[in-house]
């Protein structure tokens, strides 16, 4: 009987024969680690890019989105827990879609790219890498929607075929990571820096959960860290919490807290700070950091006006707005 040590994520699980890693889907069968969800997504949808959320990457484009069972995070408020907190063998609905089929479908549907999302793509790493390689060859872009709990070397390799990443930073607090998500903060911060070093387009989100991670000093700390380590042009999204899964005892995030958090991050010096889950709010739109012109107006996930020049500049002052606009 041979144990295997998985070096993909910082859990570094040592898995006995016949068992799975902490993610539930990487399984030791006969001394070899098997990626049981390779080519077997359980969720397949076409979404607007804004839903990921990515606001500075191909606005209004459609993105072919796939996800599988399993996750290496165990967030008590997970909105996709039916997927993420189950093993592959527990899923009733599994599609068969090998990488070439995913790419063909994405092209047929007129999508600009493929998003690896819903559960964390770290746990279906091989499927992501193979699909992304084919997608790039076919002229499609690749997007990771991730909590970035991954070791540096695997991430560097994946960055070679990744065009954009939106990383959900759960809190700027290791205790929160341990208690709410069963992980740790430091590897996530390291992964964010790696994305930046590898020149992957990066946006950061932060879901504010009342009483757990919504105090302004912590928000200020996170915003400062993003400004100093990733750059002031990194788009930052504050998202509102809704009670679900194992966290139904807390109320939804108030508009007031979301607005105060946005103000705090703008005051710290971040140029593009957004509010999600508040349809029609001014914090959904993009403004020129130099003269304040609204350059992209959004309502929900819909882009209703895009005034950027073809070169991605403010139409009034010609300041380049950071992003991948086409």
């Amino acid at each position: 009987m041979t144990d295997v040590a998985c070096d993909l994520c910082p859990h570094r699980c040592v898995i006995p024969e016949g068992a799975a890693g902490d993610c539930r889907v990487r399984v030791n069968l006969g001394g070899r680690l098997r990626a049981t969800t390779y080519g077997r997504p359980s969720a397949v949808h076409i979404d607007p890019m804004e839903k990921k959320p990515l606001y500075h990457f191909l606005p209004a484009a459609s993105v072919f989105s796939i996800g599988t069972a399993g996750c290496n995070m165990h967030c008590r408020n997970c909105q996709n827990w039916q997927l993420s907190q189950r093993g592959a063998e527990e899923m009733e609905s599994v599609h068969r879609a090998m990488p070439d089929e995913v790419v063909a479908l994405a092209r047929r549907e007129g999508c600009a790219g493929i998003a690896y999302t819903y559960n964390d793509p770290v746990v279906y790493y091989e499927y992501v890498e193979d699909t992304a390689t084919l997608a790039r060859a076919a002229g499609l872009r690749n997007v990771l929607v991730t909590a970035a709990f991954i070791n540096r070397e695997p991430l560097r390799r994946l960055c070679r075929v990744t065009d954009a990443a939106t990383v959900d930073v759960k809190a700027f607090d290791d205790h929160f990571y341990q208690e709410v998500c069963s992980t740790r903060l430091k590897p996530v911060l390291e992964a964010l820096v790696t994305f930046r070093e590898e020149k992957v387009w990066l946006e950061v989100s932060n879901l504010l959960i009342p009483s757990l991670n919504d105090d302004l000093p912590q928000i200020r700390q996170l915003a400062r860290w993003v400004r100093d380590e990733l750059g002031a042009d990194t788009p930052f999204h504050f998202l509102g919490f809704r009670p679900m899964y194992r966290m139904r005892n807390l109320p939804p995030t108030s508009q007031d807290i979301l607005e105060r958090a946005r103000r705090e991050a703008l005051d710290v010096g971040l140029h593009h700070v957004y509010i999600g889950n508040l349809q029609g709010h001014e914090g959904e739109s993009t403004y020129c950091p130099r003269d304040g012109t609204r350059v992209v107006r959004r309502v929900g996930f819909r882009v209703v006006e895009n005034l950027l020049t073809p070169a991605g500049e403010c139409p009034a002052c010609r300041k380049p707005i950071a992003g991948v606009w086409q």
Binding site: V4, C6, L8, V14, R34, A35, V94, Y125, E129, N151
Partner: peptide
């Protein structure tokens, strides 16, 4: 489901 061999592991 898939029996595809994963990357990033070693026997111990």
């Amino acid at each position: 489901l898939s029996g595809r061999e994963a990357l990033w592991y070693r026997a111990v």
